[in-house]
C-alpha cells in the first residue's frame, strides 16, 4: 500500500474548493514521498480533465445513477474500489458534511485509521502524523496513525489549494460492485438561492442575543449580503427562536474557520469561541468593552450594533464598488 488517493467533491459543475485543498496536500505528500497521487470523481465526470490538471497521475471515474447524489453505501463501495486500484495508503478528502460521513464509513470498510477535520499534516513523519482540534478547539492533538490505510479529512480553508499544472491525467473508468443500497436519498433539499452555509463561507457575519429579536438579524443579513458572507448565530439567538439551528456556531453548533468572522452582539462565551476561535480574523461589535470577545478580536468596535453595522455596510459598499 503506497499510493495517495483524493476523493473529489463537486458542486453544480465545479470542483469544490476543499477538493483543491486536498489536492494541494496530496501533491505535497506525493512530492516528498515520490509516490503518485490519484483522484476519484464520482459525479460530473466532465470535470475529470480539470481535476487531473491539479497534478494527479490518474483520475478514476464511475458512472451511473447510484452516484447521482451522495449516498454513503454506493460512495463507500466506489471509494474502497478506487483505494484498492491505486493501493492507497493515504486517502484525503475535505471535511465537508459528505467528506466526514464518507471517510468514516470508508475507514471501517478498509479497516484503516481515521483522522477527521485535520488542520496540519506532518508531511515528513513516517507514518504520517496529523494535528486536529479537540475539546472544541480548546486543545490541539497531534495524532499518530499507525493503522493503514490512513483516511484523513481536511478542515476547509486551512490547506493551500493545488494550482492547475499543464499536466494531463490518465482517466480510468471503474466499475465497482455496489451490492445493496438500503438507505436511499428521496429528496435533496437545497438551501434557498444565495444562502451560504456557515461551513462553506469565507466570511461569516454572526448575531447574538444583542440583536434583540428575529428582526434584529436584518442588519446582520444586509451586511452579510454585501460581503457575500454566510449568516451565523450564537446559541442564545437560536434558543430564542430568532434564527434556525443550522446557523448556530459553537461547541454544539458548527465549527467554522472562515477568513473573517464578524461577531455582532455576541459576548464570546467559551462554547461560542470553541466554534469560531480558529477564524483567521475576528471583528467584534459589542457595546460592552469588557465582553470576553473584545480581547480576542483582531478588531473590536465598542458600540451599538444597530448603529455600527449599517454604517459598516455603507462604507463597504463604497469601497467594493
Amino acid at each position: 500500500m503506497t499510493g495517495i488517493l483524493v476523493i473529489a467533491e463537486t458542486r453544480n459543475g465545479t470542483i469544490h474548493k476543499t477538493t483543491r485543498e486536498a489536492a494541494g496536500a496530496a501533491m505535497e505528500l506525493s512530492r516528498r514521498r515520490s509516490v503518485p497521487a490519484a483522484a476519484l470523481l464520482l459525479t460530473e465526470t466532465q470535470l475529470a480533465g480539470e481535476l487531473g490538471a491539479l497534478g494527479f497521475s490518474t483520475v478514476y471515474t464511475v458512472e451511473g445513477e447510484r452516484y447521482g447524489k451522495y449516498n454513503s453505501e454506493s460512495y463507500t463501495a466506489a471509494a474502497a474500489h478506487a483505494a484498492r486500484q491505486c493501493s492507497a495508503n493515504i486517502i484525503l478528502m475535505g471535511a465537508t458534511g459528505m467528506g466526514r460521513d464518507l471517510t468514516a464509513r470508508l475507514a471501517a470498510r478498509l479497516n484503516g485509521a481515521l483522522a477527521s477535520d485535520v488542520i496540519r499534516i506532518h508531511y515528513d513523519s513516517d507514518p504520517v502524523s496529523v494535528v486536529r482540534p479537540v475539546y472544541s478547539g480548546k486543545l490541539l492533538a497531534e495524532v499518530e496513525l499507525p493503522g493503514s490505510p490512513r483516511i484523513i479529512s481536511l478542515r476547509p480553508n486551512v490547506f493551500e489549494p493545488a494550482s492547475p499544472s499543464g499536466q494531463q491525467a490518465q482517466v480510468v473508468r471503474l466499475d465497482p460492485d455496489t451490492a445493496s443500497i438500503r438507505a436511499q436519498v428521496k429528496q435533496a433539499i437545497q438551501a434557498a438561492q444565495g444562502v451560504l452555509d456557515v461551513t462553506e463561507a469565507d466570511i461569516i457575519v454572526s448575531g447574538g442575543r444583542g440583536v434583540g429579536g428575529p428582526e434584529g438579524f436584518g442588519v446582520i443579513r444586509d451586511l452579510a449580503q454585501v460581503l457575500n458572507a454566510a449568516v451565523g448565530a450564537s446559541r442564545a439567538a437560536v434558543d430564542s427562536d430568532w434564527i434556525p439551528y443550522k446557523h448556530q456556531v459553537g461547541q454544539t453548533g458548527k465549527v467554522v474557520s472562515p477568513v473573517l468572522y464578524i461577531a455582532c452582539g455576541i459576548s464570546g462565551a467559551i462554547q461560542h469561541f470553541a466554534g469560531m476561535g480558529s477564524s483567521r480574523f475576528i471583528i467584534a461589535v459589542n457595546k460592552d468593552p469588557d465582553a470576553p470577545i473584545m480581547n480576542k478580536a483582531d478588531f473590536a468596535i465598542v458600540g451599538d450594533l444597530f448603529k455600527v453595522v449599517p454604517v459598516l455596510k455603507e462604507e463597504l459598499i463604497k469601497i467594493l464598488n
Binding site: 483522522a115 486543545l139 490541539l140 497531534e142 493503522g147 475576528i282 480576542k296
Partner: peptide
C-alpha cells in the same frame, strides 16, 4: 493496537487582543 493515537495534546496559540476602537459609529 489502536489505529490512531494521540501523541501529545497542546494548547492552541492564544489569540492576542487586537485594536479596540470606540466613538462615533
Amino acid at each position: 493496537p489502536p489505529r490512531s493515537r494521540v501523541k501529545i495534546l497542546s494548547s492552541p496559540p492564544a489569540r492576542q487582543a487586537g485594536r479596540v476602537v470606540k466613538g462615533e459609529p
